[in-house]
Amino acid sequence: MSVTSMATTSPVPSQRFSPARRSNLYFVWRGVLGDPVARIAAVIILLLVLCAIFAPYLAPFPPNEADPALRLQGLGTPGHLLGLDHQGRDILSRLIYGARLTLLSGVVPVILGAAISIPLGLIGAWYPRLGEVVMRVMDVFFAFPMALLAIMLAALMGPGLGNMMIALVVTLIPYNTRVVYAAASQERELAYIEAAKAMATSDLKILFVEMLPNVVAASVVYSCTIVGAVVITAAGLSFLGLGVQPPIAEWGIMTSEGRSYVFVAPHIAALPGLAITVLVMAFNLLGDSLRDSLDPKTRLQLVKHRAAPSADDEGKA
């Protein structure tokens, strides 16, 4: 299916303008489904989201119901598949309920942070003066370790889930902005941007129609990798009493609560820790796959390579 090099091969009626034009979404879908690793990652994330939504129906016990008689019982205790914690609460139930707040505090700040960082980085790269101001302000934020900054902000605003999420968003903005700014500064120098200027494209369109698709992949991949760090930071804030308050089930809190019993009943800390690890890995792997399927250079090969022969022309005629 090579592209003809010289004059058109046959007169083609104009209705058949774009027989196989497909949306980005199609390629993301095909790319993720076609890649076994990404498929597993997507399934894990989907399961976690389902757990979070249907927690009351899935969990065998209410998350805070304690049975002090069975404190610290290990895996496989009858009726409690994953054992019980130091207060005698069912760990499986708490993990299922915990998915709610963990996803909320780990994923939502990353999405909100990216939504603010992408325009900020693009505009900063386009208007050098403004960009200089923006990036120097970001540098001030960089001077503090991520956890420390989040603690400071959360402490200023007071405890609570909402305030913690705001603190995390603010903490994340400098990192993602830097990624977008670097990518956009590179794109800015390329000839297609100059061509866009020569054809009187407005600044806004250059940034958000021409440049955005070329920098968004970097930000998506970065966002996926940072989910893990955010989940852990959120857990740290909760541990310090600045985020979600303890009786509520959240993986980070569960891990830190289990800390004191790590020699007596290691599963209390290990299971939520394992859950965080799985969540983080799932996002990392999905991020890799998204990068490949967002890039027109790699995604076609991905789809072609995996699809059955002649899948190329299956689209509407």
Binding site: A191, Y192, A195, A198, M199, A200, T201, E210, P296
Partner: peptide, 25 residues
């Protein structure tokens, strides 16, 4: 007045189809 560049690949937006590139102006 328009311009044609030295590096042809770089002068087209890599994330836009050929049709989208040509119809932009």
């Amino acid at each position: 007045m328009q311009i044609v560049f030295q590096d042809p690949l770089q002068s087209l937006n890599p994330r836009r189809t050929v049709a989208e590139n040509v119809e932009r102006p």
